[in-house]
Amino acid sequence: MQVPILKQGAYLIATVQSALTDEDLKQLRDTLVERVSVVRARGVIVDVTALDVIDSFATRTLRDVAHMIRLRGAETVIVGIQPEVAFSMVKLGLTLEGVATSLDLEEGLAYLDRKGKGPGHEVRTHR
């Protein structure tokens, strides 16, 4: 099952639409790592709302995606982890440490927008 990847502005958005095999996950990882430089993306969103299971292999692959893309100079955010999936992941001992996550696509885009501003461009708020 191929995961469609859309380009929106400076971001790539991969929307998982059904259960993925280990092979599908590896292909998604490799495609994202390659595409991020081809389209000069600054951020990547992986939307996993449709996944009913994120097991140890899926977690490791998502973590690898985020770390590889960071090495390529862009940011990754995983969005849409369902509550029961989060529960199972934690019970299993999986935490996605060092990987940004957001509630949904909207929050993910907002996260990347904030990240993109970077130091020096930050809007100062006066208290």
């Binding site: 299971v53 369902q82 029961e84 199972s88 299993l92």
Partner: peptide
């Protein structure tokens, strides 16, 4: 539904 995800995850492993 929480336990459905738990059982499915265990089977996957």
């Amino acid at each position: 539904s929480t336990d459905l995800a738990v059982v499915a995850t265990a089977i996957s492993e």
